[in-house]
Design a protein around this nucleic acid. Structure first.
Lengths: 252, 252
DNA sequence: AAGTGGTCTAGACCACATT
DNA sequence: ATGTGGTCTAGACCACTTG
């Protein structure tokens, strides 16, 4: 039994909070977020029941419920009636739903097949240092791969990862589902991401990789993926041929 | 005082509902959605207080609250502590936040200036009929315009609207903020939209309109905008130069 | 049958805006 | 001072899953 006294605080202030009033359920949320970030519960594993958490933290079940509801709304946790609340996993369903926005013009979203061309460890360039908030001289792991939804490659993709976070990742085969690997092997949970899209002309090198003509229009997607604590942990630059595929964006 | 009995129903079934159990607050939500759609409250105007709605409908205040919370989460209603709950408006803030995803590479999002090139009424082509769910021979209003964030035009845009919904819109000047006009003049509220993005080469005609070179890569955005009741009411095809601007997509 | 999340209620109190 | 939404609680009951 932790002697957590809800009256004032117990957690760390959140970014962008009005500061001057912090509802209890946000403090509870911060506690749970901390535990998720610390890997207290395994990916896919169950959290304690609402009642147990409420008793342990010393608030009512309704307050815990509101905290869990917000975590569920952010896809960090999955609630299943009759079963319990579980740590969200990066299975293919979730990635297709949340992170993979390229879908065939006719047909269902599908998970792409990847072919790794190159894995290297190098000093981060200026763009990588800016995106990943790295110091001068920091090292990154770079992964270059092709991705396809059918027989033809559609995407050429460069990933940059801070070497300190993912030490040794360059020594093992690169799986198709990276986010699952980050979570299981390195305790790094991708919580959300920001993508910037542009239309560009293919360079000769990229055109050759994709089996397309140089100068052809391609969709360039720069993604910065953020971990649970909000720090950038992956930079991913994708060049996509969009003749038979489009990027789907829902405006809600 | 309406004699609404919450026990079973009173509203219309929602799409995609498991069907077999409908919580009270969803029935309340359906009622409120109906009133929004019917224009019972003016855009920007206040709804009755939670207590009043609860008494009128015959449920507890907590149930009304949960319905209003969901409407607020969908940006259909705005809640302001101490003041009340208001019908969401399509002011520039909301449009920038929800519907306009093109932002300068360096700098803040800004609302673009538009120049109308052409307004016509014609028979809907196959693409328009499919997107707007129109019958053969239905008419559409087509608006062709240029949009800019600075001195140079960045976007050439074709809008298609069902003529039956927006009769007479072709006879008046086209304002910069169309969604606000749809709501005020035609009682049509844009609730959300789906965008499909591709990279394409500019046609000679579009290149000339944008003052760019034919064949240059451009971002093509096909938007279908949906009204409160979920029916498509606008097709908008935009071609954007993305040298100094990008499309921002948040993956949450 | 037991355990979990989901709904609904009622009431007290807090934070905020307006009069 | 009044009225609004926001928080917190406690308890009853419902729906769903598992043994």
């Amino acid at each position: 039994m932790t002697m957590f006294k809800p009256e004032i605080d117990g957690g760390v202030a959140e970014a962008g909070e009005p500061l001057g009033f912090r509802p209890l359920y946000r403090q509870v949320k911060a506690i749970l977020l901390r535990r998720l970030s610390d890997g207290v519960w395994a990916p896919g594993g169950p959290l304690p029941s609402e009642g147990q958490l409420a008793a342990e933290i010393g608030v009512s079940q309704g307050t815990v419920r509101k905290a869990l509801d917000e975590l569920a709304a952010e896809n960090l946790v999955v609630r299943r009636q009759g079963r319990g609340t579980f740590v969200a996993e990066h299975d293919e369903r979730r990635i297709l739903f949340q992170f993979f926005k390229l879908v065939p013009d006719d047909g269902e979203p599908r998970f792409p097949e990847s072919t790794v061309l190159e894995v290297t460890v190098q000093h981060a360039d200026a763009e990588e240092r800016a995106a990943l908030e790295l110091a001068d001289g920091a090292q990154v792991v770079r992964i270059l791969r092709l991705r396809a939804l059918g027989p033809r490659p559609l995407i050429v993709e460069t990933l940059s990862l801070p070497h300190t976070l993912f030490a040794g990742i360059e020594t093992a085969p690169v799986p198709n589902n990276l986010y699952s690997l980050y979570a299981r092997r390195y305790g790094v949970t991708i919580a959300h991401a920001r993508e910037r899209l542009k239309a560009v002309a293919l360079s000769p090198a990229d055109a050759e990789r994709l089996g397309a003509a140089a100068g052809q229009p391609a969709l360039r997607i720069d993604r910065i993926a953020l971990s649970l604590d909000g720090s950038p942990v992956e930079l991913r630059i994708s060049l996509c041929l969009t003749e038979e595929v489009h990027y789907l964006s829902e405006l809600r």
